[in-house]
Design a protein around this nucleic acid. Structure first.
Lengths: 346, 346
DNA sequence: TCTTCGGAACGAACCGTTTCGCTCTGTTAT
DNA sequence: ATAACAGAGCGAAACGGTTCGTTCCGAAGA
């Protein structure tokens, strides 16, 4: 039903090859240019990406594999990734691994099978085995947020350990000593942040009793429950550090619900300011990641890899081939969202 | 690089046509079956969906166009839609319209251009003009959550007016009379729920003073702000009805932060229980939509439409053609999540 | 004037499938 | 014994583009 390149030929008398050249920005006589432009708009011609894909072996689609599409963190990344891709004409095929390594491996195969040009992954597995199908098919992969243990990969993330370590300054400089942590221990990111926390405490010469260490799931209700327990301790901490958005949200709920006030009775330092700071009183101190920039960097890196792999196939050689073939880890900076959820202990 | 059907031919001596038939479940001699199966697994052959798509005009991909991928409501829908599609071998191409009609129209064209087999939309526009490209291309569309004003379309949703109306019973039966509402007026859903609220109040013969009507954006901070204002009124309401998740979340924050207690000082009735009820104390009364079932229904309906449109093209006629050609509106039931956020006013 | 050269257009092959129409078997009914 | 038929396999023509190698042309250089 839709017009094809051959309809354009019938209309203009030009050959299929010439029309294709025009469509791809090649040199065509000015007079033919206008004829073509006219025919194209009259017939509402649009190139058939499928047919093009068959010969170029490109689908102008990238796969994005996240561990949970409903999590606000993933959702935010997806939004920015999607925008960046769209502006370049790329579609975004999304899979949700439901925090399950099995599903993740399966989804990756699915994406490979769909012949996406590249894949962005926020991984749940911590080793690279599940990426094999992509590697075999020559499909570039860029990781976000989390690295893998066994092998270096293209990756865009923050220095989680350092970010946590530095953020702890806020509490320590305000003379807090009894500091608890609520963190997730299931994924790379959470572990790193926990390490940063422990190092900061150790360096400050402060103990962290077992009941101050709440390590569990990456979930709002875990944060809620943990904070409740902390507030009920006889030896209550004066400050709590929370290492991700979901946990922070739950913990905030718990404090608000208690008779304790923040920051008078309990100081709070959270992670990943997504919307909370616009709403909650007092405004939270938070470690924030540049999610938009991270997404854009990931897309940029991925597309560069895609471009390179295409060139390699065609044997094309550029002298200004400055880009590395090696895995690149891009470490983004973080900043502290100022607030007044931390009390100065004189 | 990957094996093609011709490699299989070389290996088995069978013709391309026969191999294709086998791949699509056609009749092939048992002996050839085993030969084919062996060759396929040895060569790691997998059919090239692109090439197949070129001739079948199907991509096994559906587009999903939501108004905000980061909103938890959309995210939850996407999760279930994605699962349903995946189990049927379909990929999910996602676009975010950022609650902008212009972007929405553009995204729809993008999806059409990508030759998706069908499209699921949670629309932001309230008229059907933006769907024209899909209609022209013969691509089925199923709406979710929101209808359009000018025309009936395939749609899966709840009866928002009725759900709100019925939910109000909870407050009215508990003898509440000073009831405020915080709602979003920007989209179909919010308007309907607001209507339901007003009708319930009217039927109960209760007035709704202007300062009890908080109509604004579909956002957490709007809920937060509105609730704060309500609590500061001299003539404070005894109960508040909140008509979506974001607003409910914000409002809960505001109450928790105030010196007022729920339900002693203020009763609350929310909408869309996504996670809140697992965390917040007191447990909230909430109107809940069957989001999983809605998603599955939408996918089911869409795939049925896709199937039908394929048959129409091939002129295939089935006598058991029971399915309607007319637009179908599937109205799902809602239920009330019990809690104790509502006080009985003796 | 005769070559040389480069830009524009062209024809045809190709990408990896599906599908149409045909042939070739071997079985069943007459 | 023969006609009719069904099942399995085959070759070739699509599908709608890209691209390679070639031809054609006019302008520039010798």
């Amino acid at each position: 039903m839709p017009a094809t390149i051959r309809d354009i030929r019938a209309r203009t008398g030009l050959s299929v090859a010439t029309i294709s050249k025009y469509l791809n920005g090649g040199n065509v006589l000015p007079e033919n240019r206008v004829k073509l432009q006219a025919a194209i708009s009259e017939l509402h011609y649009e190139v058939n990406e499928i047919a093009r894909g068959l010969v170029t072996n490109k689908t102008k689609t990238v796969g994005v594999l996240v561990y949970s599409i409903e999590s606000l963190f993933n959702g935010t990344l997806l939004k920015y990734i999607g925008e960046a891709l769209r502006s370049l004409g790329y579609g975004m095929l999304i899979c949700d691994s439901s925090e399950d390594e099995e599903v993740e491996a399966q989804s990756l195969r699915f994406l490979v099978n769909k012949k996406v040009d590249g894949i962005i992954v926020v991984p749940v597995a911590d080793h690279s085995a599940f990426l094999k199908p992509a590697r075999d098919a020559g499909i570039p992969v860029v990781l976000m947020d989390r690295s893998l243990m066994d092998e270096e990969h293209d990756c865009v993330k923050i220095d989680n350990r350092m970010a946590a370590f530095r953020a702890m300054r806020l509490l320590l400089d305000n003379r807090h000593e009894k500091i608890a942590v609520i963190c997730s221990q299931v994924e790379y990111t959470g572990i790193q942040r926990y390490k940063g926390f422990l190092e900061a405490m150790e360096q400050a010469g402060l103990p962290v009793p077992a009941e101050y260490r709440k390590c569990g799931r990456h979930a709002m209700d875990f944060g809620y429950q943990s904070m409740k327990e902390l507030l009920e301790l006889n030896n209550r901490p004066t400050a709590v550090f929370m290492t991700n958005y979901e946990i922070t949200l739950g913990a905030v709920m718990a404090v608000k619900e208690s008779s304790f006030r923040c920051p008078e009775d309990i100081s709070m330092l959270g992670f990943d300011d997504l919307i909370l700071s616009k709403v909650v009183d007092p405004k939270m101190y938070m470690v924030v990641q540049p999610m938009r920039e991270m997404s854009e960097k990931a897309v940029e890196l991925l597309l560069e890899r895609i471009e390179n792999s295409r060139e390699k196939k065609t044997g094309e050689k550029k002298f200004n081939e400055k880009k590395s073939e090696m895995p690149v880890e891009i470490i983004m900076g973080t900043r502290i969202q100022e607030g007044n959820s931390i009390r100065f202990l004189g």
